[in-house]
Design a protein around this nucleic acid. Structure first.
Lengths: 243, 243
DNA sequence: AGAGTCATTCTCAGCTTGAGTTAATCTCAT
DNA sequence: ATGAGATTAACTCAAGCTGAGAATGACTCT
């Protein structure tokens, strides 16, 4: 990570401005069909009163462990979360106090209870992503990067299954795509597609106890398959508009 | 990037083991049809004599600037390089001397002259990626991540054009895919495909002065189009084997 | 001149996709 | 109870894309 010569020439901790390394976590979940992100309210300057992504200093642990620890501290306990590194933000001036390099993580969780307030932050809560603006520091950019990553990964990975419970219906899975993409896939084609992609989902053999709230037959239940990537991919309807 | 409370509680630079932040750059190019990576030879312990990725400390600059600077120091001058952040590696124990968090970058360059030795490193050189094993620190893992990213991005971005010159033939572009994927796409289908994806390449109107070295007609010349993503994507032949 | 190479264009069958339709199964309000 | 409306699941069909192979010339080298 550094050439020896430069290490010897330059290495003197006191000669450098202190650099802090933190992790920030973009945690996404779906509540009532709407994509939410976990935010904490800052109590002090700078950005007092602003909402921010949960995060904190990295200790004697790997970066992944730090992200998982921060998340657990904010929300109590996190079962079955998918966690992956998103990107690192480290320009000078991100934090007015000192140089802070922040490794951002992205987490996906099935619907969880409201965060325990006994955690690290004064107040942690789920906020619909559309309302999550004017965050502290450069957290708007971090959130935007997380959302774009999530949207893209729904296409070619079985990530959507991380948002639903152990057993789920195809309609619930479709709801994940609708919430994240902001657009509803064609129900019939979606059904055909998720069943045809090998390893995406597998039938449990049972069905729901009742039909939908407003009627309809009982739907079959599925669980996540063992595929790590989807092939062929599920392309989002709006992909023509991108360019 | 950090809650205020934790910042106040924990922040004391001397109370923390010093953390260094560096950038390491995986620079890929194609020479004689073979994918190469830029490596430097370490002169000192640890890993003296080992090959390593070029990199160094982050100064008063953004992370992107640091990566670009390190690259320029190693190779002289870098025109037209594509540079993107890859991932951050920061577990304890990566470097036996101190905690080092390294932000890895991925760069793609058209064929360049051999690196100027007047740069930062004692000896920088291009090494075929298949020979780039047993690197210092965890650079094997960083390189592997860079290669996988490069292979994936060839599918859905016009990245391949970053490996060739301003003007290029479709065969040269195919050569990029062959070198990176390790598998030659079907020539006819590749030709049809790159021409049909909107914004990938555009004809310049001219042709090469001569045919190929071993015969064949003169080929038309193209330049990169303005698309940022390819739609539909160019899938690698081996994608069925993944799973 | 002849052999071999290679860019480019076609053909064609198979597969996937988008859009719409149909049948059967339920819930809810009347 | 009964009908209206909703929903799952399955089917149809045309259009587009893909992989594989082959044909056509334009070149270079011997």
């Amino acid at each position: 990570m550094v050439t020896e010569r430069e290490f010897l020439d330059d290495y003197d901790p006191r000669a450098y401005p202190a650099v802090a390394v933190t992790v920030d976590v973009v945690t996404l979940t779906i509540r009532d069909g709407v994509l939410h992100v976990l935010l904490v309210e800052r109590g002090e300057q700078p950005f007092a009163g602003c909402l921010a992504l949960p995060g904190g200093f990295v200790r004697e642990e790997t970066l992944d462990e730090a992200a998982l620890r921060e998340l657990a501290e904010e929300t109590g306990i996190l079962p079955r979360v998918h966690l992956e590194q998103l990107a690192t933000f480290g320009g000078p001036g991100r934090d007015p106090r000192m140089r802070v390099v922040s490794v951002a993580y992205l987490a996906f969780a099935p619907r969880l209870p409201d965060p325990t307030v006994g955690g690290d932050a004064a107040a942690a809560r789920w906020v619909p992503v559309d309302d999550a603006t004017d965050l502290a520091f450069d957290h708007d950019a971090i959130l935007a990067a997380g959302l774009e990553r999530a949207r893209a990964k729904l296409e070619y990975t079985p990530l959507a299954t991380a948002f639903v419970g152990e057993e789920f219906t195809i309609a619930q899975l479709r709801g994940v795509y609708t919430a994240v993409w902001g657009e509803e896939p064609h129900a019939g084609n979606f059904h055909r597609k998720v069943l045809s992609v090998p390893g995406f989902i597998e039938a449990t053999g049972s069905t729901t106890q009742r039909g939908g709230e407003r009627g309809g037959p009982r739907s079959k239940l599925y669980r996540a398959g063992d595929a790590r990537i989807l092939h062929p991919a599920l392309l989002r309807p709006s992909s023509e508009e991108r360019r």
